[in-house]
């Protein structure tokens, strides 16, 4: 409760400073609208459905791309951890491509797929895939050999060994890879939506883009707030419970 109050007080103070900066006319109102104006924009965008529509479209792109990246990344990571042939090929490629900022995929995606959903999906998958591959690989390589030996004597082998021993033992690494993959997917999707103005659906990034085109600063700031809140919620609702479970089970300290 005390922590919640502190947290609330902090954000209220931020709002007050913003309000003060607006009233003091530190910048032109075109560049810095009042918190109220941003609130009004969000309210009207929510009422006429634009905001929900854009959020749903963006989340759909994100989740599909993220899911594909996970489904591809996990087995690839297991392969690179298991066989040096895969490590020297796919593993090296993953290591290289992971360092590439995912926004760099946008020009390529545009030329390959044109202004289409496929281009979006491609960029999100590229953002997710490689960090999941690398995290899974690292996780599997860090499984203490004694777990495997203990499981072997109890009659575990093959697929059972992978699913019931190696994968759960690698879970802390895999989850941090999933989290990183999520962050990369989210960033790359925003980049893609800002650059790729397609007609199949208007996402949050596109709202942001048109906010700039129209010099509608209330819209730009409003959408930024929405994007930040979605990122926070994803962390609190999806990743935090998993991490709490890991900390409790493994007995690692919660940083």
């Amino acid at each position: 409760m005390k922590r919640f109050l502190f947290s609330a007080a902090f954000f209220v103070t931020l709002l007050l400073i913003w309000e003060w900066a607006f009233r003091a006319r530190l910048w032109s109102p075109v560049l810095l609208p009042a918190p109220e104006q941003v609130g009004n924009y969000l309210k009207s965008a929510a009422e006429d459905g634009t905001l929900w529509h854009a959020t749903i479209i963006t989340m759909r792109r994100l989740l599909i791309g993220y899911f594909v990246g996970m489904i591809g990344g996990l087995p690839l990571g297991l392969l690179t951890a298991r066989w040096n042939l895969f490590r020297d090929t796919i593993g090296t490629m993953a290591l290289g491509l992971q360092t590439l900022p995912s926004v760099c995929w946008v020009p390529l995606a545009l030329l390959w797929f044109g202004q289409s959903e496929a281009a979006m999906l491609f960029v999100v998958v590229m953002g997710t895939l490689w960090s999941v591959v690398i995290a899974t690989d690292t996780g599997v390589r860090n499984v203490p050999p004694i777990f495997r030996r203990a499981a072997l004597t109890m009659g575990s082998k093959g697929l059972h060994m992978w699913l019931k021993v190696i994968l759960p033992a690698a879970l802390p690494f895999v989850v941090s890879g999933m989290k990183q993959g999520w962050a990369f997917a989210w960033r790359s999707l925003m980049a893609a939506e800002i650059f790729v103005t397609i007609l199949t659906g208007f996402g949050l990034g596109q709202l942001l883009h048109y906010g700039r085109e129209l010099s509608a600063m209330d819209q730009v700031i409003g959408i930024i707030v929405v994007i930040v809140v979605i990122g926070l919620l994803a962390d609190k609702i999806f990743f935090s419970p998993i991490e709490r479970f890991l900390h409790r089970r493994w007995g690692t300290s919660q940083a």
Partner: peptide
């Protein structure tokens, strides 16, 4: 094979399972 089970110097218990889950591991096979 589980006819001859080993106890190591380190307990080698699986941290992703609770106590019961660890004892159940061999039984599930």
């Amino acid at each position: 094979g589980r006819e001859r089970l080993v106890m190591f110097q380190e307990p080698a218990l699986f941290p992703w399972l609770d106590v019961l889950g660890n004892v159940l591991f061999g039984l599930k096979l």
